[in-house]
């Protein structure tokens, strides 16, 4: 059981559309670990698209946290994906 964390900047608030969240959500479901995304004190389950939608109303960077057997892999993969989706890198 391991725990991992990563922070992802959000350069433009308006980049938090349904699309990047949908991509994140789809990939998150492929991992065994529990995955949460936190922004400005508000936490959403990365495996729930509905919960993810609420993060667009918050401010600041996103924190991705994973707990479980594949937490390291999940956090690395998903934070890179999210960064690319949101900040077009």
């Amino acid at each position: 059981m391991s725990r991992h964390k990563a922070q992802i900047p959000v350069e433009k608030d308006e980049s938090l559309h349904l699309r990047p969240m949908q991509v994140l959500n789809e990939r998150a479901l492929e991992f065994k670990s529990d995955l949460t995304l936190t922004r400005d004190g508000h936490t959403a389950d990365a495996k729930s698209m509905l919960e993810l939608t609420l993060l667009a109303g918050k401010k600041g960077p996103l924190t991705l946290e994973g707990r479980g057997p594949d937490a390291r892999d999940a956090v690395n993969t998903l934070s890179a994906l999210l960064d690319q989706q949101l900040n077009k890198r």
Partner: peptide, 13 residues
Amino acid sequence: FDSHVRLLDDKML
């Protein structure tokens, strides 16, 4: 439509 599928097939829901 892809987004709507994700919203329907939702753990929290």
